[in-house]
Amino acid sequence: MTTLLTAEAVSVRFGGLQALDEIDLTLAENEFLGLVGPNGAGKTTALDVLSGRRRPSGGTVRFRGDDVTGQRSWQLARRGLVRTFQANMMFESRTVRDHIRLGIQAANGPGAFRTLLRTFGRDVGRGAEVETIAERFHLSGALDENADELPFGSQRLLGIAMSVTACTVFPGVLLLDEPLAGMNDVEMSRALDIFATLRERGFSILMIEHNMAAVSRAADRLYVFDRGRNLAEGPPEVVLADPDVMSAYLGADLDGSELPQWTGGV
């Protein structure tokens, strides 16, 4: 398997806080990676660096062999690397149709002049393509509803639909930031089915997720981050049995000798 995306000794510093401390990560073609770790481990920061939203203070990011450190997210998206966001980040009071239309427009070419020329032609928002995509992501009934008024699970699916539609360079990379959070069982199984389909279509996926059962079922490999460092890496069953990983999640050594002392008030 060829390597698509790598982070080599990537560091990010926010003022006095070392958010990422020489993180290493590789994503191979058509691989499904899980990225887990306690809150504040730097998972989202790592995703921000990989997707070009944040410039690292040190280290190198490579995509398809090219050094893409410091490239902006629009540049990476045009090279076939797209992401979703942790919060439900929908365009306020814009319909599901508008969102999917934006994804199609990005696929048709995200340049301003091309978009302006196409504006005088056929409206992609009224075409059959929108319906097809909506159906694939279980959004058919909600096409003309405001996206920010949808249930959270549907908002997540819409976010994935947009980024996947926008990604036209294959094999594409999809970075997901807690896509399953707030989903009920039905939505979660739908989402996991969609991920499986995307892999069949050639996507490589990196998913941050707190739901251990789901992530260990879906992912080929897990990365565990703790306090901005690589803690462990490997197949889910091996990683989750690792005593270091367990202690990171419990916040103390397993014998309890370093359990944090409660010093606060009531």
Binding site: S51, A77, V82, M89, R94, A106, T115, L116
Partner: peptide, 20 residues
């Protein structure tokens, strides 16, 4: 379509940029 991009930019530049 151009207006769709503009109205989306008004709401979240980060999300629009993530699409290219």
């Amino acid at each position: 379509g151009f207006g769709n991009v503009l109205k989306s930019i008004k709401r979240s530049e980060v999300l629009v940029e993530s699409l290219g």
